[in-house]
Nucleic acid binder design. Structure first.
Lengths: 210, 210
DNA sequence: GTCTCCCGCAAACAAACGTTTGAAACGTAT
DNA sequence: ATACGTTTCAAACGTTTGTTTGCGGGAGAC
């Protein structure tokens, strides 16, 4: 059973536990024991817990941002509609981890955590590594929504990010807080379609100029 | 300087620190030292750290839910439109903490944390205490959106909650990740209006039935 | 063989955590 | 003034945290 790469076993276990309970609430001992590796392996291979967190993000943000960038290059100067642009991003997110449907949920959840819990080090790391891709997306989105004022666009992007990162992250919480009996089996693609409708509708909403 | 109530000083400091860094990342020592009280005061007055967290939530959820419920009673059987219903909730949130504009941001941030980080105990506490109010709101919203299927409504409420709780919570994060020079001074009422437009637009979005 | 480099392992480390303790200080009623 | 219940305080409690330490084993080069 020790055949599988230790580094990958740690990353696999860490991203699941981080997504379930957050970064501070997940101890290295919980990760290593569940992964079946020695406690010292984390500090040996990654250096520190914080470096492990960054490694987890790199492993799923690098393929995602890479593929997103090439697809943005392909559809350059096409003046994408808002729906096509949003679809491009979401399809890229789904394609990157197509093999494992569970990893899509983890992807959303970790994105939400990065956005919410990001403190100091993590925030700088994300901006330096992936700020450029985000900036290109914002540029395309600006072209796709010419009628919005910069202030409106800023906030609506903000709201859309919130809706997106919460999409799959807090699913259990919502199911728990409402006694309702609601969908048990959930297909990521289906949720993704509904999310796109919601976000596009929100960004497209008429502005009741004050 | 010891004249102010110790309990309130703890609550004031705790809600700020919790909103800034999360629950697990905020130690009792950080709270008590910043509040200028003794470390043991938390366990003496509240019993445990978890009880302190619940007390923080009760202090701003009780007035909010109370006022929301009376306002719901007043406008019962009026068949509220979606916009009026959403406006009712948001105006109640603003009115409850009108005196301090900073507390509105804390209110949103804590709501987001409760929704995201809620584990076990906390989740049960919120449902038992405030599940009824949430259920009434859902009932009114169902009446306001008769064309939506239950599945669509479920997810769009979910997305709307995500957009809302993220609204003021991750503001700094978004400002940090994008190098853009964007609004420095932000008025909660203004953000609230934009959020309402976005959420209403998202919930009202046409469903491209598959 | 032997040397070397890389990795896994149990054990221990200092620091920080939430919590508990027992005594001192407080205001108040008798 | 004395006595009593409540609150505050410094100090210590036992755990758990992230990190470090030597030791041992196994694969490849010479």
């Amino acid at each position: 059973m020790t055949q599988a790469n230790t580094v990958e076993r740690i990353l696999d276990t860490a991203e699941v536990l981080f997504a379930q309970k957050g970064f501070a609430e997940t101890s290295l001992r919980a990760i290593t024991s569940k992964a079946g590796v020695n406690l010292a392996a984390v500090n040996y291979h990654f250096g520190s817990k914080e470096a492990l967190i960054q490694a987890v993000f790199e492993r799923f943000l690098n393929p995602f941002c890479g593929m997103l960038e090439t697809r943005m290059d392909d559809s350059l100067e096409q003046s994408l509609t808002l729906e096509k642009l949003l679809g491009l991003v979401s399809r890229t997110a789904l394609d990157t981890h197509r093999s494992d449907t569970r990893r899509v949920a983890i992807f959303f959840r970790l994105s939400g955590l990065a956005y919410t819990q990001a403190q100091g080090h993590m925030r700088r790391f994300l901006r330096e590594r992936y700020g450029a891709v985000f900036g290109r997306f914002l540029h395309l989105l600006t072209a796709a929504t010419p009628t919005l004022t910069p202030l409106e666009r800023f906030w609506r992007v903000h709201f859309a990010l919130g809706a997106t990162t919460f999409a799959l992250s807090g699913m259990e919480s919502l199911l728990a807080i409402s006694n309702n009996d609601l969908p048990q089996s959930i297909k990521p693609e289906q949720v993704n379609d509904m999310l796109l409708e919601f976000v596009a509708g929100g960004i497209r909403a008429p502005s009741e100029a004050s």
